[in-house]
């Protein structure tokens, strides 16, 4: 049997891990540490791990825990609820999409994206998607990615980051609309609809 932990394969996985950790942690050095620790833990546990079949899935499960630990530690010193200038600007941009009666401005409503699922098969789309994620303010992105990438329940996200449920919803809404707008402007094009 070949060793599942051959260096070349681990190096390839390491690149994916770094990319994933950087997106979520927004700090290259911190991401590097999380990846190193996850790889070390994976190597320590290699005896219990039988076969290469799901090595990547397994290593990423370890990385997920490391990322959560890092976010949890960070949330003790950083107030996730505090709004940055970027986040305030996002909220103002969002508000400008609406008329005073809170319905869409005639040319500002979300557009029809046709068959967006088709984009999922295109590498170029994923580059745009990553760029849009990186464009989100750091705290907003962390909450969003904890929910959507690490697949935590909203209650767990709120508890881990010590923010209220309603604030959690506000942050996730901000993230989703930021992403939605970014994808619309950079990939799916115009064709805005109001009511």
């Amino acid at each position: 049997m070949t060793d599942a932990f051959d260096a070349e394969y681990l190096l390839a996985i390491r690149q994916d891990m770094l990319r994933f950790a950087r997106l979520q942690l927004r700090d290259d050095a911190v991401a590097e540490d999380a990846v190193q620790e996850a790889l070390a833990a994976a190597l320590d546990g290699r005896k219990e791990f039988a076969g290469r079949a799901a090595l990547k899935t397994w290593v990423f499960a370890i990385l997920r825990n490391k990322i959560v630990d890092t976010i949890r530690e960070r949330s003790r010193s950083v107030n996730v609820s505090a709004l940055s200038a970027e986040e305030e600007e996002m909220d103002q941009t969002f508000d400008r999409l609406f008329k005073p009666n809170a319905h869409w401005q005639p040319d500002q409503g979300p557009a029809a994206w046709g068959d967006p699922e088709a984009a999922l098969g295109q590498e170029q789309f994923w580059a745009v998607f990553e760029a849009c994620l990186k464009h989100l303010p750091a705290n907003t992105a962390r909450v969003f990615m904890m929910r959507e990438f690490l697949e935590f329940d909203t209650d767990e996200v709120c508890a881990e980051l010590q923010i209220s449920t309603s604030n959690c919803h506000v942050i996730l809404h901000r993230a989703r609309h930021g992403l939605r707008r970014c994808l619309e402007q950079t990939w799916f094009g115009n064709g805005a609809a109001s009511c």
Partner: peptide
């Protein structure tokens, strides 16, 4: 607009 929003 909101129907598009849901799909998005």
């Amino acid at each position: 607009g909101c129907s598009n929003c849901r799909k998005q």
